[in-house]
């Protein structure tokens, strides 16, 4: 038995070089948005939970070599680019600081739950040929209403994202070239993956999820990070147009009907409907 295991171990090591080629030659790239979903109009804060950003190099043998400097730079660049992009749409990103005690537990639990739900979507919805019959035409995953606890942190939405970059080293590229020349097949050089998801904290629903296993843009540079964020935020729900507060909260302003000099009623003109929405606008501003 031991020797069988040993053989299996030896075999598994030979696979070091045989990684999926999609990493470089165009792989899975999918986006799901809850049908017709829009970010609410008016002021919208999105909580950004501690992103998982990893940047390093891919060694000749295909190992990931983590690089602390690259990772830190990339993280800062990505967050900067994200703030810029969403800021332009009137959405504020709130970075969730490390939480202590009970809230720390809640954040940790929901971060883990998001990961589980997102991978269920990836497996059962985004992987064609493996889709669940009940989910084929639907995108209705949720983290449950308990997610509303997170609103305390100062936002109505929760954004989670992950990026993983392993830049092909010179040695890796040489191997890739050698393999092509010598007929060794396609040896991928470099891995660049990412995913991001948005949760509506009022309902707990996962409203948008984007997965890309061959991302562009080098997050170690500011420009690259902008390109990366644009790809990461593909098909991000639009913000609802118009005034905030779709359901006015019962503020009724009665405008005296316009009368002619002789006391007869004149037909109401269109402006008559407007003051109500202005009033709720003021309410929201408080």
């Amino acid at each position: 038995m031991r020797y069988i295991l040993a053989a299996a171990a030896a075999l598994s090591m030979t696979l070091v070089t045989a990684q999926p080629a999609h990493a470089q030659f165009g792989g899975l790239e999918r986006t799901e948005v809850k049908e017709g979903y829009q970010i609410k109009a008016g002021e919208a804060n999105i909580l950004v939970f501690r992103p998982n950003v990893r940047v390093g190099a891919q060694t000749t043998g295909g190992m990931h070599e983590p690089n602390a400097e690259w990772t830190e730079t990339a993280k800062a660049n990505l967050i900067g680019a994200m703030q810029e992009m969403h800021g332009a749409n009137g959405i504020e990103l709130v970075m969730v600081p490390d939480q202590e005690g009970e809230m720390g537990d809640v954040v940790e639990s929901y971060t883990a739950l998001f990961g589980t739900v997102a991978s269920a979507v990836l497996t059962h919805k985004m992987t064609y040929g493996n889709r669940l019959p009940t989910k084929k035409d639907r995108f209705d995953w949720t983290l449950g209403e308990g997610a509303a606890q997170l609103k305390e942190l100062g936002g109505d939405y929760g954004l989670f994202f992950y990026t993983y970059d392993s830049y092909g080293s010179t040695g890796r590229k040489v191997i890739q070239g050698l393999a092509l020349v010598l007929g060794g097949g396609l040896v991928p050089s470099g891995v660049h993956m990412g995913y991001a998801g948005l949760v509506d904290l009022n309902t707990g629903d996962l409203v948008w999820l984007n997965v890309d296993t061959s991302m562009g843009g080098d997050p170690r540079t500011v420009e690259g990070a902008q390109k990366r964020v644009a790809q990461l935020m593909e098909e991000f729900p639009l913000k609802a147009a118009g005034e905030p507060g779709e359901d006015p909260e019962g503020v009724v302003i009665v405008v005296p009907p316009a009368t002619a000099e002789d006391g007869t009623l004149l037909p109401a003109d269109k402006e008559g409907d407007e003051p109500a929405s202005e009033a709720t606008d003021e309410e929201d501003a408080e």
Binding site: T14, V16, T17, T60, G61, M63, G171, A179, G183, G184
Partner: peptide, 21 residues
């Protein structure tokens, strides 16, 4: 591990069979 897998992959590619392991 890194140097081992580096050599392993070079040998595997050059020899053509995954002997590099």
């Amino acid at each position: 591990l890194r140097s081992g897998s580096d050599i392993a992959s070079i040998v595997s590619v050059v020899v053509g069979v995954p002997l590099g392991a």
